[in-house]
Amino acid sequence: MLTAIIRSLRGQTLALSVLVIVLASETSQAQPVDVRGGNQTLSITTGFAGGEPVAVTNTNSALRYRRQAQTSKITVRTSCPGQNFNLSVEAQGVTRGVAAPAVQLVNGMLDTDFIVNIPNSGFRQTTVTLLYTASATFAQGNSAEFGNDVHTVTYTILAQ
């Protein structure tokens, strides 16, 4: 009987291995979520007397994400020790899912919804533009005195 089981398992192990390999290869085709465009820099250089410095925007990076088995969402968080200035991010051109309003990126923040209701069918992967907006007040000072703010912005896709 044991011999029969072993013999039977040989063939089925092969089938199981094939299944695992197929799954693995599908995973390696594309990341579930992928930040494209590399690191970004936003520089505030001017302002209004009697007003505030002029905010700057950056749309040079994008987020590509894949359809998942279940309805999913993407969250965002940042790590920026000693943050002095203001930074927000918003998804633009979202056709798969619903973009949340602009998220203020604050050091120590919890994961915050960025794109929600991403369907589990009808597409394989999609790319949206990341709109970063940096702002500062005169009272917040400048980089020469306080240094730059360096944010590590993390996007996570998870089941909703």
Partner: peptide, 8 residues
């Protein structure tokens, strides 16, 4: 990714 904010 990293996003740097500089204020002149």
């Amino acid at each position: 990714h990293r996003v740097t904010v500089t204020v002149a």
